[in-house]
Computed example of a mutant assay.
Amino acid sequence: MATRRPSQRIPGYALFSVPPLGPVGITETEARASGQPLLVGRRSMTCVGRAVEKDEPEDLMKVIVDAETSRILGAAILGTGGDEAIHGLLDLMSAGIPTQPSRTQSRSTRPYRSSSRLCSER
C-alpha cells in the first residue's frame, strides 16, 4: 500500500499548445511568498538546437530552486518539447534529488535530440 498521500503529489501537467507548455511544482510567485531563499534560473530557448531549427528560439525555460537544499521547487518550459521535457524535472523532484549538475547529470545519459535533453543543452 502506498504511503504517500495525494496532498504530497507534485503538481504538473502538459499543455499541448503552440508553443507547448510544461509546468511542474510551484510558481515563482508562490515560492517567493514562502519567504525561503531561492535561486531562479531562466534560459532562453536560443541555446536549444531543436527550437532554433524550428525557428522558435523566443521561448523560455525557468527553474525555481530552494537555495538551502538545492531541491527543485518548481519549473516551467514554454517551447519546443516543453510538454515532454518537463517529465525529467518532475522525476528529479519526486526523487528529491538536489540540482548539483555533477551529482545528477552524471547518473544518466540523455538520448541525442530527445526533448528531455532540453534541460541539459548549453
Rank of each mutant, 00 (worst) to 15 (best):
residue 32 R to M: 05
residue 74 G to Y: 06
residue 33 A to V: 03
residue 62 K to W: 03
residue 30 E to W: 12
residue 70 S to F: 12
residue 61 M to P: 00
residue 25 G to F: 06
residue 70 S to M: 12
residue 52 V to C: 08
residue 37 P to S: 11
residue 45 M to A: 09
residue 76 A to Y: 09
residue 22 G to R: 05
residue 54 K to D: 04
residue 56 E to V: 13
residue 50 R to H: 08
residue 26 I to V: 15
residue 44 S to D: 06
residue 59 D to H: 13
residue 46 T to S: 14
residue 22 G to P: 09
residue 72 I to S: 05
residue 70 S to P: 00
residue 27 T to V: 10
residue 50 R to K: 15
residue 70 S to A: 14
residue 60 L to N: 14
residue 29 T to M: 12
residue 69 T to Q: 05
residue 55 D to W: 15
residue 40 V to S: 01
residue 21 L to S: 07
residue 65 V to H: 11
residue 30 E to P: 02
residue 65 V to C: 08
residue 28 E to Y: 06
residue 28 E to T: 12
residue 60 L to R: 13
residue 53 E to P: 02
residue 63 V to F: 09
residue 58 E to Y: 14
residue 54 K to G: 00
residue 68 E to L: 07
residue 71 R to A: 09
residue 39 L to R: 15
residue 50 R to E: 11
residue 42 R to S: 02
residue 54 K to P: 00
residue 69 T to N: 04
residue 34 S to R: 08
residue 56 E to G: 02
residue 23 P to R: 06
residue 23 P to S: 10
residue 33 A to H: 03
residue 50 R to G: 02
residue 40 V to L: 02
residue 36 Q to V: 06
residue 21 L to K: 13
residue 56 E to F: 12
residue 66 D to F: 02
residue 33 A to S: 07
residue 68 E to G: 03
residue 45 M to Q: 04
residue 54 K to N: 08
residue 31 A to D: 06
residue 76 A to I: 15
residue 37 P to A: 12
residue 33 A to T: 05
residue 47 C to I: 00
residue 74 G to T: 07
residue 61 M to Q: 08
residue 42 R to Q: 05
residue 62 K to T: 13
residue 73 L to W: 09
residue 65 V to W: 10
residue 76 A to D: 11
residue 66 D to Y: 02
residue 23 P to W: 05
residue 40 V to Y: 02
residue 39 L to C: 13
residue 37 P to C: 06
residue 69 T to P: 07
residue 45 M to R: 00
residue 61 M to T: 04
residue 39 L to W: 08
residue 63 V to I: 15
residue 69 T to C: 04
residue 68 E to S: 10
residue 70 S to N: 14
residue 63 V to M: 14
residue 32 R to C: 05
residue 25 G to T: 03
residue 35 G to W: 02
